[in-house]
């Protein structure tokens, strides 16, 4: 996927979000939480798109670091610990319709950790999952509500999402 394709995909997702949350008051309850690292810029872009399309107030956007909730921490204690970064959710998630945003959906373990983390912040009305790429190979019963693109891959391959905010360019590539 190139930059243009990514932009069009996100616009499409924004429209889908608005369709799915069309009941009165729903849009007002929406909030975006990006999973660090690359879920965060995607969430911010979606916030902007939602505002562009729908108008009104900016959708509150936060950043979630799931490191402390990972299920593989300490299981094989070799090497240094993963770096922990700040979680910044500057709003109450209680009774919000949370759009949880990540770049790639793979085994589902990151999303599991993110769900656990979110619940520690409050009790949202609903959590919907947004991913730019779904590459399959789920290990947990998790399914995205909005998928930018389904990319069938083999487990030996890796899917790299590059974003301008982090990497200087927008591109999705499959390696290996």
């Amino acid at each position: 996927m190139d930059a243009d394709r990514i932009a069009r995909t996100l616009t499409r997702i924004a429209h889908e979000i608005l369709e799915r949350n069309a009941a009165p008051g729903d849009v007002h309850d929406l909030a975006l939480v990006g999973i660090r690292t690359r879920g965060v810029p995607i969430a911010k872009r979606l916030a902007q798109l939602l505002r562009d399309i729908h108008g009104g107030d900016e959708v509150p956007t936060g950043a979630l670091d799931i490191t402390l909730y990972r299920d593989d921490l300490m299981r094989h204690a070799v090497g240094p610990q993963p770096v922990v970064r700040k979680t910044e959710i500057p709003f109450s998630i209680d009774d919000k319709r949370i759009l949880l945003v990540d770049d790639v959906l793979y085994t589902g373990r990151t999303i599991r950790a993110a769900l656990d983390a979110l619940i520690d912040f409050g009790r949202p009305k609903a959590i919907q999952l947004v991913v730019l790429v779904d590459r399959g190979h789920r290990e947990l019963p998790i399914k995205a509500d909005y998928v930018g693109k389904n990319l069938p891959t083999s487990p030996s391959q890796s899917v790299q999402v590059h974003l301008v905010e982090v990497d200087g360019r927008d591109e999705v590539e499959i390696a290996g």
Binding site: L68, M74, P80, Q81
Partner: peptide, 12 residues
């Protein structure tokens, strides 16, 4: 908390 977390990892 930071010290506990960082030390709980594998030895280097």
């Amino acid at each position: 908390m930071a010290v506990l977390y960082l030390l709980a990892g594998g030895p280097e």
